[in-house]
Design a protein around this nucleic acid. Structure first.
Length: 844
RNA sequence: GCCCUCGUGGUGAAAUUGGUAGACACAAAGGACUUAAAAUCCUUGCCGCUUGCGGAGUGCCAGUUCGAGUCUGGCCGAGGGCACCA
């Protein structure tokens, strides 16, 4: 019996698939389509286990759908613009393009070794001119539709990467890539008007039935809709300002008004720009900015103006106006009215500056003497101390009533606000898609004419400069449009723009005229199943949803809002962490096991401490290189293991034992195959066929259901079960025809998981016409019912009977069963609950 | 602080959606084969008297039900998301 030579067999099939263009796809309107897409990788140089998991999950689905007869689109490409290339290029003094292309070459060959069913003829790379010229065209289309605009704005400035970051790229006050503390800086920036679609982006979440609720909730919170009203407060004081607009969700608490707070960037700050104390205060605020600690400690500080604001519902009441560090300029109107009794933040501020705290809401279970003392009350209740509003139920009734009153008195109006802000897309970087704009001598922007696209990145430039290298390219910067000399925009686009439409490009990757072909996207879009990491729950997925809307906006040819019909977010790959006695992280490769204990390979005196299992990361050195795994165990074993044990949406623990066990299972399946080949050399008459028919059909049902529900870990369990069955029953003398038929079906179900082994075995049994096997419900029907006997809800026995046995007949059997009679003990039966074919519960 | 998700053997997990808890796998222990080892196969969730049998058992406490891992309420714990959003 020969050993399974995974290397030659995997290579053979990969070559066969490639040479025969097995996964090449074209439109075929006679067939139902299935667009299976995994998030495309950044070409960092090598694939990691996260990729292996992501692409294995996608491949299982793509192959399954293909076997079912769908016309499957399963492409792959490269998210190849971005800072790592630029940084690597700087360090090694080479061209980012060359660095990137080399990485792509390498990663592509690694991915191919995984045996993925990818149509490589559709490969795209976002850094190629062929890709970004269409992106520039889209930018100009959006510009024309006024969905792109330029404004001066405070930005999140990353001092290490010397670039602007989107709010979403600032994590805990630090740059998401560099980890540097983010600063505030005012710059001219390009923006995509994503907030125009806030309501629609929110509404359509409801219809995304095949998205995880988790992701929908995150997006919902991110969009952050709130209902309230704007109120125009009259003010009096020493500057020529008559009123200040505020946004509030709690107008019902207006009688608890005790101060008005402004953002330091509010237009009123212009009157204080010569006030040294104010400037000092403003500095103080920008320092506490967005850092983690600052928010945690979050001391509320204010700067008192000489203004007073008048309560519009009680004009006798005048309260002080402050600038305060907790008021944001880019939400609402940069001004809030303070009601300390019913907002914790206002409460803290009032305590600090000794402002009035007037209770105007009492909880439902309190009486009217209720007073807010050491903590704001933000819950529901009834309005008190509020004159004509007294007795209203809050918040629902009271908010609506108050808004009506405010509208009638023309003091303000109903208003809906969103937290979602427009998407700043300008980046001060070389390695990105150039923004196709040029400026005239008055600094007015002009689109680059379509005929002059693409605006190509200059090559062979000096990257070792501070700030944006494109700024220094004086020759490149200068251009002539309509005979006028102009200066190019030197900012490039955020790389999230590239990934916002790549799913469209895959439909027609070769179209030179436009980013995609209408016929092609009409057939292929939307993506039926999108698979990737949950880390993109907000940024990438929201941007893509926006981009699809932006392209469809005012465009009769495209009527598509949602790019991804189904979304699946897979968990991470984790591994134990190791440290040496000096507290340094140690990689699994550097460890040797002696007598069950782990030691440092190069120094056996040093014992390793084993830490918790965490997601694989270079910094903790707990990574496993997929290339080595494929080399030593094969792609099928790697695929099998990455799907085993844990459900795909949860984290999976990588372990040496696990991959070894998967490797062994592949070997076992191969031995089984050899035995079956022996077995089918002769035929049998003995009619044991029914057994295998039945088992196979039950198995097919389970596997099919598990595939449909992404329960891929259960499929592996099913494969173990079917193996155990076959290896035991192989000599049961099934007729040759039946054995081959059923074995063929089983092998086909293995195709999505272990395609090389499965293809080889199918070939060896000379199987033709390979398509997903249907199961026959009639063959699955149970011929024996196992009925649990419960006495007073406790399991006391198990009886095997014919199916659908009437209760009377069952009781006859029970009455002959000594074990059970022991429990009945002649007692009177009060009640019987009989669930056919399942259980009977006898209550005494 | 707010929002979401999840708590099942030593470990990763299953459980026909309210009906035999622990499928499948990893680890450990014991056993078989072997001169021996490797490989392979079998047995074992826990507590008790030890073929068998009995008991407890799905984070904790209540509730609904003939019956709860599954449903309801309250607590405890873990993970994730958001960050002064008015």
């Amino acid at each position: 019996m020969d050993r399974y030579n995974f290397r030659s067999i995997e290579e053979k099939w990969q070559k066969y698939w490639e040479d025969n263009n097995v996964f090449k796809t074209t439109i075929d309107k006679s067939k139902k389509k299935f667009y299976c897409l995994e998030m495309f990788p950044y070409p960092s140089g090598k694939i990691h286990m996260g990729h292996v998991r992501n692409y294995t999950i996608g491949d299982v689905l793509a192959r399954y759908k293909g076997l079912q007869g769908y016309n499957v689109l399963h492409p792959m490409g490269w998210d190849s613009f971005g800072m790592p290339a630029e940084n690597a290029a700087k360090q090694n003094n080479l061209d980012p393009k060359i660095w990137t292309e080399k990485n792509i070459e390498n990663m592509k060959s690694q991915l191919k070794k995984l045996g993925l069913s990818i149509d490589w003829s559709r490969e795209i790379s976002t850094c190629s001119e062929d890709y970004y010229k269409h992106q520039q065209n889209f930018f100009l289309e959006l510009y024309k539709k006024k969905l792109v605009y330029r404004k001066e704005n405070y930005v999140n400035w990353d001092p290490v990467d010397e670039t602007v970051l989107a709010n979403e790229q600032v994590i805990d006050g630090r740059g998401w890539r560099s980890g540097a503390l983010v600063q505030r800086k005012k710059l001219n920036q390009w923006f995509f008007n994503i907030s125009k679609f806030s309501q629609d982006l929110l509404d359509e979440l409801e219809n995304l039935d095949n998205w995880p609720n988790k992701v929908k909730t995150m997006q919902k919170n991110w969009i952050g809709k709130s209902f309230g009203c704007e109120i125009n407060f009259d003010v009096e004081g020493d500057i020529p300002i008559k009123n200040i607009k505020c946004f509030t969700t709690r107008p019902d608490t207006l009688f608890g008004f005790s101060f008005l707070a402004l953002s330091v960037d509010h237009e009123i700050s212009n009157f204080y720009k010569d006030d040294k104390d104010f400037l000092k205060f403003r500095d103080e605020c920008s320092k506490t900015g967005t850092t983690e600690e600052a928010i945690a400690v979050a001391e509320k500080i204010g700067f008192k103006t000489n203004l007073v604001a008048i309560n519009p519902l009680n004009t006798k009441e005048k309260v002080p106006v402050y600038f305060a560090n907790f008021v944001l300029m880019d939400y609402g109107f940069g001004a809030v009215f303070g009601c300390p009794a019913h907002d914790q933040r206002d409460f803290d501020f009032a305590k600090k500056y000794d402002l009035k705290i007037k209770t105007v809401v009492k909880p439902n279970d309190e009486d009217e003497t209720f007073q807010v003392l050491d903590k704001a009350y933000t819950g529901p209740g009834v309005l008190i101390n509020s004159d004509f509003l007294n007795g209203l139920k809050t918040p629902e009734e009271a908010v609506i009533e108050t808004i009506k009153i405010i509208e009638n008195k023309k003091l303000g109006k109903k208003q809906i606000n969103y937290r979602l802000k427009d998407w700043g897309v300008s980046r001060q970087r070389y390695w990105g898609c150039p923004i196709p704009i040029a400026y005239d001598e008055n600094n007015n922007p002009h689109p680059i004419p379509k005929s002059m696209l693409p605006v190509k990145l200059p090559q062979n430039i000096n990257l070792n400069t501070k700030g944006n290298p494109l700024d220094k390219e004086t020759v490149w910067k200068t251009t002539i449009i309509d005979g006028k000399k102009m200066t190019r925009e030197t900012d490039t686009l955020d790389t999230f723009v590239c990934s916002s439409w790549y799913y469209l490009r895959f439909c027609s990757p070769k179209n030179q005229e436009y980013g995609f072909d209408k016929d092609e996207i009409d057939y292929w879009m939307p993506v039926d199943q999108y698979i990737g990491g949950v880390e993109h729950a907000i940024l990438h997925l929201l941007y893509s949803r926006f981009f699809m809307r932006a392209l469809s906006h005012e465009n009769k040819n495209i009527n598509l809002k949602e790019p991804f019909n189904g979304l699946f977010t897979q968990g991470m790959v984790c591994h134990e962490t190791y440290k040496d006695p000096d507290n340094n992280w140690v990689s699994p490769d550097e460890i040797e096991i002696i007598d069950g204990k782990k030691y440092l390979k190069k120094d056996n005196s040093k014992q390793i401490t084993v830490g918790s299992s965490e997601s694989m990361s270079k910094s903790k050195k707990n990574t496993i290189d997929p290339e080595n795994i494929i080399l030593n165990y094969g792609a099928d074993a790697a695929r099998l293991f990455i799907l085993s044990d844990s459900p795909p949406e949860k984290d999976v623990q990588w372990s040496e034992e696990g991959i070894t066990s998967s490797f062994k299972f592949i070997q076992k399946l191969w031995i089984l195959n050899s035995k079956i080949l022996d077995e089918i050399k002769s035929d049998h008459k003995n009619d044991a066929d029914h057994e295998i028919e039945k088992y196979t059909n039950k198995f097919l049902k389970k596997v099919t259901e598990n595939l449909e529900s992404f329960s891929y870990n259960k499929i592996i369990a099913n494969l173990h079960e079917v193996y155990s069955f076959l290896i035991k029953k192989i000599s049961s003398k099934y007729t040759r025809k039946t054995l081959i038929n059923n074995y063929k079906k089983i092998l086909i179900t293995m195709m999505p998981v272990v395609p090389h082994l499965s293809s080889e075995c199918l070939n060896l049994i000379n199987a033709k016409e390979i398509h997903w096997p249907e199961y026959n419900e009639n063959l699955i029907k149970e011929e024996i019912a196992k009925i649990v006997i419960q006495i007073n809800g406790k399991k006391r026995g198990l009886i095997e009977t014919e199916p659908n046995l009437p209760e009377n007949n069952l009781m006859k059997i029970i009455n002959k069963d000594e074990k059970i009679l022991k429990y009945l003990d002649g007692k009177k039966i009060k009640k019987k609950i009989y669930i056919k074919n399942r259980l009977i519960n006898i209550i005494l």
